[in-house]
Design a protein around this nucleic acid. Structure first.
Lengths: 212, 212
DNA sequence: TCAAAACGATAACAAAAGATAAGAAAAACG
DNA sequence: CGTTTTTCTTATCTTTTGTTATCGTTTTGA
């Protein structure tokens, strides 16, 4: 199973100086679809750098979300509040497109909260403003279409995993697809939520999987 | 939990004569975004009526899919093949947009199969042809964008249910949201797959839920 | 630096789900 | 029709997960 929290925009984004990150974002968009110079200039004028401290919230349940971001540095988690309990359903890492996207789309209060798991640097833009500005831009509509389709594909794959695999299989898939050591830095009970099981159960599965 | 197999285009679609169903499709598209007359004429020329007998396949695992359809009449199920076992993950009913959409988007062989659960009448169009034809149409790009976003929202909701609810809660949600009696006509082991449990387990849950 | 909080492993028990099989009921089909 | 297949329930047994609690360890933050 793949971590489908967000859309990975480009692997090199975090390895270049911040000053050129906007251009890399541009190249990324261009890979999806041609993006005219004047459109880009307009988008650029709305991009901002935003920093979060660990535990800061990027989006909050009950509040209408309007910001969409690219994670330049750091990692975040997305969770639902269920009877006062936090249920982590997503992780966002560097180069992921990130945000309470559904709240942005619908304009309704968000069901989810997004919290920084580490200090983060983000490239942010206001969704409604930019989307209105580009309402008649073919390039922008195509770009957003591809984003949504990409997102749907990731969700579909994740859903298939939840329906068809056992928790142990999901865990094995998760660590198999985890080239980096990034998962090891995430508290295990968050990963357990992500897998749809309890922390205790994940601990047992880890015992089973890693011992032999 | 909601049956998110497809996008419900319009509730009245099946209650009008077939001859005007194309126009209802048009009104539906127009609700998402303005759709110029000439675009519509071009789309119309690619729409076809297709009928399936019960057990016929609309899409097949391993074969590249290219047709997208609106279900005019009937119902279908979508399943994965897992070690020779069929795992039903979706149902499509009247007015749903339906197809092996991911295979259409990627051009790769489909992972899923779509089978008619009853005799069906479909409004079909060839995805790649129409999509190429409308590559530069703002209306079409917007429409496809909204479709993908709608799809992603449904998938997200379903995933949240799978992660956070127990099988019994998922079953309760399913029947609570089932105004029609349509679920009762679907073989229970398909529904069990859809809920991510075994048929035997669903039978026990039904016993628990309905007895008192 | 030190106390408090968070984290992870483990144990014990209860509850639920999976696997399998058997039998009844319903549906499909010639 | 009547036979065959499919579907559903029920029972038994095993495995897994959930729940709760305990106990070191690590991390956090004042």
């Amino acid at each position: 199973m793949v971590l489908t929290g967000g859309i990975i925009l480009r692997a090199e984004l975090n390895s270049v100086p911040m000053s050129s990150s906007f251009n890399i974002l541009r190249k990324t968009i261009t890979r999806f679809t041609p993006f005219p110079e004047e459109d880009w200039e307009m988008l650029l004028s709305h991009l901002q750098i935003k920093t979060l401290k660990k535990h800061d919230l990027f989006a909050q349940e009950g509040k209408r979300a309007n910001e969409v971001a690219v994670v330049f540095e750091g990692m975040l988690r997305q969770f639902y509040l269920n009877d006062g309990e936090e249920k982590t359903t997503y992780f966002y890492f560097e180069n992921h497109l990130m945000g309470a996207y559904i709240s942005c789309l619908t304009g309704k209060p968000s069901d989810i909260t997004i919290e920084a798991l580490s200090d983060c640097t983000l490239i942010v833009f206001p969704y409604d403003k930019v989307n209105q500005l580009f309402a008649e831009s073919l390039a922008w509509q195509k770009f957003c279409r591809y984003l949504a389709e990409y997102l749907a594909m990731g969700l579909e794959e994740r859903m298939a995993g939840l329906l068809m695999l056992t928790p142990e299989e999901r865990y094995r898939d998760l660590i198999a697809g985890n080239k980096t050591k990034i998962l090891e830095r995430i508290p295990q009970h968050y990963v357990a939520n992500y897998l749809g099981i309890t922390p205790v159960s994940l601990s047992r599965i880890r015992n089973r999987v890693h011992k032999k």
